[in-house]
Design a protein around this nucleic acid. Structure first.
Lengths: 162, 162
DNA sequence: TAAATAATTGACTAATTTACTGGGTTTTAC
DNA sequence: GTAAAACCCAGTAAATTAGTCAATTATTTA
């Protein structure tokens, strides 16, 4: 279990999706705009999340991504593990044999620590995060900000098509 | 709070130090040999650990590094924070203003999560890790392995000085 | 005092991972 | 049949990790 910015991006995007998803599929373009993450990078992350069976892609106009389970059934640890390649190895190819064919201190200690962190993050679901006032408040404000930002291009586009 | 291999190296090295330290200063060369970490990389890590006041360097022959506090008073979170540059920023230079001059979901969510992980790791000290049978057992075995490797040079040196 | 030891400092490099860009192709609603 | 969106792939820039090399400084011991 590693905690990096990559995992944070994934968790943030999934939380955005969980907040907007129940109604209709959410496009990655929307998430990219709201969370200021590169669209193509999001595509990479969601390819992994999809393979992990956490989201479903809906193609075509009006499409986007939906959670494949209820937000209360998706936990943070799973999200992070889906996008992080498990760079276990570390030296001990898998079974602890990095030091004279025996497990090293590194292996035992860190595996134990990260197991505990993993189980801690497994106890936190997207749903439980959404219930926190602070989170939903920020999400609501981002929706309003987005309307402001998007408004101009949309009206321009209408003028163009008109 | 990030969890990377860099932090693991630091924690492992500190645990090795804690195990051997009470008696005498421990050289980075010894730690590098036992934990198979590059000596120069260890030097970089210990420069940070020293600045953070967690270890004291003892120069000259018979020197090395010692813990500056009892191992029960040094926790894992402090070690990781000492070696990881705080790549908070993330975009929100410090005070959440990354999104239209207001805190973003990323910031609030992840800061909250990593705060909880931090406080969790703060509750684990080097001392408490050493009390675990598995850890001390591996450490003891590493000492024996090392003697085998080091024995030849030492006896040669005695012959030379004799 | 000289020699050896070991920390300390700093600049530099290679490898890996992260983040992003840009081009495409499918699928599907309208 | 056209536009919206997922999906796919190759490449690349930036950042981080990991390591090397070469010095300097402090200290002990002989």
């Amino acid at each position: 279990m590693r905690l990096t910015t990559k995992g944070r991006y994934a968790v943030t995007a999934m939380l955005d999706l969980a907040y907007h998803s129940p109604s209709r599929p959410v496009t990655l373009t929307d998430i990219a705009t709201r969370q200021t993450i590169s669209l193509s990078y999001l595509e990479q992350l969601f390819a992994r999340l999809r393979k992990a069976g956490m989201v479903k892609g809906v193609r075509g106009p009006g499409g986007g991504y939906k959670l494949s389970r209820d937000s209360s059934q998706i936990n943070i640890a799973d999200i992070i593990e889906a996008v992080d390649e498990q760079v276990d190895s570390t030296k001990c190819g898998g079974e602890g044999n990095c030091q004279n064919n025996q497990p090293c201190l590194t292996h035992d200690l860190w595996m134990g620590l990260s197991d505990q962190i993993r189980s801690y993050l497994k106890g936190i679901s997207l749903g439980s995060l959404l219930e926190q006032d602070m989170v939903s408040e920020v999400a609501r404000r981002q929706d309003m900000d987005m309307e402001k930002v998007i408004d101009l291009p949309v009206t321009l586009q209408e003028k163009i098509t008109a």
